[in-house]
């Protein structure tokens, strides 16, 4: 079956590299190189450009970066021991991914520390085949939640550690304009923990032991089982809001729901359909990537996981 996972990461990881102009020169006498570089480090520190290596060997010559040249700056420089001063384009920022690193190296030698986990995320290879099967099963159930009552969107909150479904929800804006699937799932989790605010008819029959365990059959179909013993109510410290839980939702959460997930400390979010009008974790904004927000979570978009695909295995 086709279908792949895309990690929705900060735009910086996907950006083409940016360049800036530097003045550069040749070290006339290689024996003096160490001395010259030491002096340069004091007279022209590279503190804002630590990703750039100072010296580059090329055709048996030593080229050394001197300083950044601003757009309208006259770049007349005289530095003892350095000849043939010219300007050159070099990478402006530290390369974050291997792809950016390879691109950067074409211009100037850079320092790069590969983040193995990040590389997997960028390549969309962060899950084992077993995990993929499980994500697909849960997503199928989220889709069921929507189609059962012809709702535009459905969602599911899961405790991945115990492999248990904690909450289900579907968008019911006909009843209440803010009852999106995500908001309802969050409230169901609250109810499980002894709180909750919304008591609309469809949710009333669900009691705290309506938690189902999901397992994957040999042929890959999802099987729902009643969990043996009802999961005991965990202490507040162990389950604080939606900490460490996963959300599966057919549609990308809107800006309201995305921020609700920040407030609720969700662990990971999976969605199929992006929302170009109001999507809060990928399409319009990436709330989960904002550095100045107090909680961050991982977001994955599942490509080519249409209902048809999920059913016609």
């Amino acid at each position: 079956m086709e279908g792949k996972f895309e990690a929705v990461l900060h735009d910086d990881y996907y950006k083409d590299i940016e360049l800036c102009w530097f003045s550069c020169g040749l070290i006339a006498d290689k024996k003096e190189a160490a001395q010259i570089i030491k002096k340069l480090a004091i007279s022209h520190p590279m503190s804002n450009y630590l990703h750039l290596k100072r010296v580059k060997q090329f055709n048996d010559e030593l080229h050394v970066l001197i300083k950044r040249v601003e757009d309208n700056e006259d770049s007349m420089l005289f530095i003892e021991g350095i000849t043939q001063i010219y300007t050159i384009q070099v990478p402006l920022k530290k390369p974050l991914t291997r792809k950016q690193f390879i691109e950067s190296q074409k211009f100037w030698n850079c320092h790069f520390f590969e983040d193995k986990k990040l590389e997997k995320y960028v390549a969309g290879l962060m899950f084992t085949s077993e995990e993929i099967e499980r994500h697909k099963c849960y997503m199928k159930l989220a889709q069921d939640e929507a189609t059962k009552i012809m709702s535009p969107a459905g969602g599911l909150i899961v405790d991945p550690e115990q492999d248990i479904i904690l909450a289900r929800g579907y968008t019911n804006t006909k009843w209440h304009p803010l009852q999106h699937a995500v908001m309802k799932c969050i409230d169901e989790v609250a109810r499980l923990q002894g709180g909750g605010a919304w008591n609309e008819p469809a949710a009333v029959n669900r009691t705290s032991d309506d938690k189902r365990r999901i397992s994957v059959d040999i042929d890959g179909t999802a099987v729902e089982q009643e969990s043996g013993a009802p999961v005991e109510k965990r202490s507040k410290i162990e389950s604080y809001l939606c900490t460490k839980y996963d959300l599966y939702t057919t549609h990308e959460p809107c800006i309201m729901c995305s921020m609700a997930l920040v407030h609720s400390r969700i662990g990971r979010v999976f969605y199929i359909h992006p929302d170009p009008f109001a999507g809060g974790i990928g399409s319009r904004v990436k709330i989960h990537c904002r550095t100045n927000i107090n909680h961050h979570f991982e977001v994955f978009r599942m490509h080519d996981f249409d209902k048809k695909d999920l059913y016609n295995e």
Partner: peptide, 11 residues
Amino acid sequence: NEVNATLNATR
């Protein structure tokens, strides 16, 4: 605010 009363951080 009814966040603590409902254990729901969106309230």
